[in-house]
Structures are given as structure tokens and as C-alpha cells.
Design a protein around this nucleic acid. Structure first.
Lengths: 186, 186
DNA sequence: ACGAGATATTTTAGGCTTAAAACATTGGCA
DNA sequence: TGCCAATGTTTTAAGCCTAAAATATCTCGT
């Protein structure tokens, strides 16, 4: 990248040979496997210990972190799920008395969602366990390795965000099916 | 890790201090974010370029890798989805002429699934693009970083697999709801 | 004040996912 | 031989998820 002359390092090779990206593919599959393993385990534990689903726990976690509550759009963006998905999810959590919806006075399109006292209590209990479960699952990594992974995944996150945006547009000319971009962005 | 004298490594600390596992939690959230970003991007691209869903692509990829086809149980285990999930997925792909189901002669409970010629052709086209998309998304990582991530995630995978099994059992005594373990294992 | 576009949410239609129970078949063993 | 536990798959009920269209409200420029 910065080397002058005829020197070709591994990265350059990767860029010049569009056929051979097996290493990235293997990495992606491994990343997916790790995430799935953790996710399935946590899902099962939340279910058996608290009879709660992962999306509901996630939604409550987002609200817990946000002092004055969040709008549906903010929730959608933070949870990285579609906007429409939230309607039913929020409806069910509201029915269960864990959260509260309030149409804002300033803008009557906006729905602000907050945890109820019961929801806050329930979440606190779940969060404590959850943190311990994650620690168990990650216990095979030393402190330094956790930090290393954080840094590398931070870099990956940046890479994906950059490529996902431009890539989607650059590929647009190729795609056969007509498709619009609607409001929802991540 | 600050204490001289007493031999305490990172794992021991994790076990002894149930309060402070924030680093692991942050790592898990970042891991989840990376996976979700990649997954959503790939899903959108598969959809707009080939009008195919991610689960269908995944299923075809598994079959492509397996010379003589796979049984439903094998597919379920490799895709890390529940057994029941496959019934409808396979049904739809079979309807679309991409795969074929055959009840095995030796054991009439077993259904063997293979790609049709059309399925093989369709998958080849998709796989080539897919590999390129992944390479784009991961382009921000150098060769060495890819290798480092592979190694660290390999270690994480081992850690999670070990903890997920034993953890589920050790927590069993605590859980309030009655629950059985059924056949399906990952 | 008014209409055009922008923004926030819901609806719709279709598909994916799980856990648990039900069904089908097999293989072993009394 | 006949039963029974194990194994492979499907069914069921409920919930999650997406993309696109529809609805509601707001903002802004004239």
C-alpha cells in the first residue's frame, strides 16, 4: 500500500486477484458461527430462566441505556431491525406491562417508549445473569485476547460500514430487479 | 491482574468477580454488530441480484459442499437451525426446482437432499458474486489481520462450545420453568 | 394559509425460526 | 415374535423479520 517499487505484499495480492478471497470467506463463516453459537445459547438461557425472547431482552436493554426512552425509529436503528418489525414487538411488550408508549406532544407522529417500573426491575434481574452468561461463554479468552478482538472487530466494523454503503450503490447498475430504497437506514 | 504474588490469570478473575465482565459484554455486542452488518448487506445483495433469500443460499451452499447430498438432520446441524425449520425451506427450494428430495432405500425415515443441475448452476453464479461481496466488505483488513481474527475467533468458538454445553446444565437447577431437552443437538 | 415534500409509524404479504409434540421407521432384545 | 426405545422427519402454535405500500403528521416556502 505504501511500499514503493515492485514489492507486492499480501494485501496487494488480494486486491489484484479477484478470484482468490477464500480467506475472507472462511473468516466470515467463522464469525457467523461464533455469533450463532452465542446467540442460540443466550436465547435458550433467557427463555428457560426468564421466559423472555432475545428481541424483547434486546429492546429492554436499549431502553435501559436510554434515560428518557426512545422513539420507534431510534429503537429500530439501534437494534438494527426494520421499522415495521417494532410495531408488533413493542405492542407485545406493552401488553406485558414492561414498557409504555406515549405519543409525544411536540410531534404527534412520534411514539416515545420507556420501561415501566416493572420492566426496569425485570430487566435488572435479567441483565445481571446475562452478563455472567456472556462472561462464561468468553471465559476461554484472556484479557489481552478480548482487547485484541475488540480492536480487530472495530476495524472490521468500519470496513463493513464503508463497503456496505458504497457497494450497494455500485452494484445497483447490475441488479435486474427494480428496487427502491425506503426511509429506513442503518 | 494487578496483584503481585497471588497467581491470578484473566480467567480466574472472571470467575471470582461476578460484577465486572463489561469487556466481554462489549466484545459480544461488537461481534453481533459486525455479523448483523455483514448479514444484512449480503441478504440485500442476494435479494436484489438473484431474488434469493439468505437461508436458501446457505442451504444450497451446504449441498454444494457435500458430494452425495445431505440428509435433513445433517443440513439442520450444519446450518445451525432447528430441524423443523428445514421442512418448509426444503419444500420451497424443491418446488423451485433447485433441489431434489429422495427417501433413502436403506432407511425410509431418512430424506436425502441434493442440488439439481439447475440448482448447481444457479448456485455457482451466486457463489462467485458472494465471494466477491465478502471480499469487499472485509477489504479494510490486511492479510495478517484476517489471519489474526481467524485464530482469535477459533479460540472463541472453542470457548463458547465448551461453555454452552456445561453452562446449560449447571444453570438447570436455577431455572424456574420446566423444560425438556429434546433430540436436536448442535 | 396552502400544498409539496419530508419524516414517523403502521400495515400487508410473505417468509424464517423455534420448541414441543406428533408421527414414522428402525433395530435390538426379551 | 413382538414390544420398546431410539432416531429422523413433520406438524403445530407462536413469534420474529423484511420490503414495500399506505397512513398520518409535520415543515417549509410562497
Amino acid at each position: 500500500m505504501e511500499r514503493p517499487g515492485a514489492f507486492i505484499d499480501a494485501e496487494t495480492v488480494a486486491l489484484e486477484r479477484p478470484r482468490d478471497h477464500k480467506a475472507e470467506l472462511r473468516l466470515w463463516l467463522r464469525l457467523l458461527t461464533c455469533t450463532t453459537l452465542v446467540e442460540d445459547d443466550i436465547r435458550a438461557r433467557l427463555r428457560s430462566a426468564f421466559d423472555v425472547t432475545l428481541p424483547r431482552f434486546d429492546l429492554m436493554a436499549q431502553l435501559h441505556k436510554a434515560p428518557g426512552g426512545l422513539t420507534l425509529s431510534q429503537l429500530s436503528s439501534r437494534m438494527m431491525v426494520s421499522n415495521g418489525n417494532l410495531t408488533a414487538l413493542v405492542e407485545r411488550l406493552a401488553e406485558a406491562g414492561q414498557i409504555e408508549r406515549r405519543v409525544t406532544a411536540a410531534d404527534r407522529r412520534v411514539v416515545n417508549v420507556t420501561l415501566t417500573a416493572a420492566g426496569e426491575r425485570a430487566f435488572a434481574a435479567m441483565a445481571a445473569q446475562h452478563e455472567g452468561w456472556i462472561a462464561e461463554l468468553f471465559a476461554g479468552l484472556g484479557h489481552g485476547e478480548v482487547e485484541q478482538l475488540m480492536a480487530l472487530l472495530g476495524k472490521l466494523k468500519g470496513s463493513v460500514r464503508a463497503a456496505a454503503r458504497s457497494g450497494a450503490n455500485s452494484e445497483a447498475a447490475v441488479k435486474p430487479a427494480v428496487r427502491h430504497k425506503t426511509g429506513h437506514q442503518r
